[in-house]
Design a protein around this nucleic acid. Sequence first.
DNA 1: CAGTATCCAAAGGGATACTG
DNA 2: CAGTATCCCTTTGGATACTG
Lengths: 116, 116
Amino acid sequence: MNCEDFEKDHKKEMRAVQDSMDVLNGKWKISIISSICYYNKRRFSDILGDIDGISNKMLSKELKELELNKLVKRTVLDTQPVTVQYELTAHGKTLQTIINNLTEWGIKHRREIIGK
Amino acid sequence: MNCEDFEKDHKKEMRAVQDSMDVLNGKWKISIISSICYYNKRRFSDILGDIDGISNKMLSKELKELELNKLVKRTVLDTQPVTVQYELTAHGKTLQTIINNLTEWGIKHRREIIGK
DNA sequence: CAGTATCCAAAGGGATACTG
DNA sequence: CAGTATCCCTTTGGATACTG
């Protein structure tokens, strides 16, 4: 492998990492996924209650983006009044490993920065 | 474990995940880490060249934040004119697993959304 | 070379009120 | 209940020019 290939591979890797981050970015996305994942199925107002500080506007917006990225499935239940259930898709569930890693790392990081 | 503990544990997990994301957020942070990691040691202008579209202002700002979080070490070399070398700290290197996971996931995600 | 400083447009996001 | 709509302040980040 010559030097140019070396460069190209790195650029590819960086694009892939960036793709992931684009999907997970936004102030609340990880928290939302984590909430739905934890309870398996979760309604709009429940997620709203799970996450400190989030507004309905933001929750709505971020859920839409997660749906577009096929991480979350939205189901309208025929109740009175309407309830809506969110759950992770199979694809969404593949984030579990990453979320676990990020959780572990977050704890270590807190120790590293604040602790000692 | 009762229901309240269950809730508390989840909140703790979410905070830990969020801590990680706070550190990695920002449009360029992952790319910068990835660049430094790839080359082991890297100068300001080299990183600037590695990452498409980044400005010196942003690179400077994000590097500072990474330094504050002790992920990156900055060394001024006594040359003429001055050169500055960036490298990952031991703590910064612990991100390797996460970056690898995000890279893999990014590739899978692209296939899931665009591919078939 | 390795940044800082300034200007400015665009996006992010909170508070509140409203709707089917 | 599950969202939309609106207002409005704050943050982000690009372009450009400048400094030790």
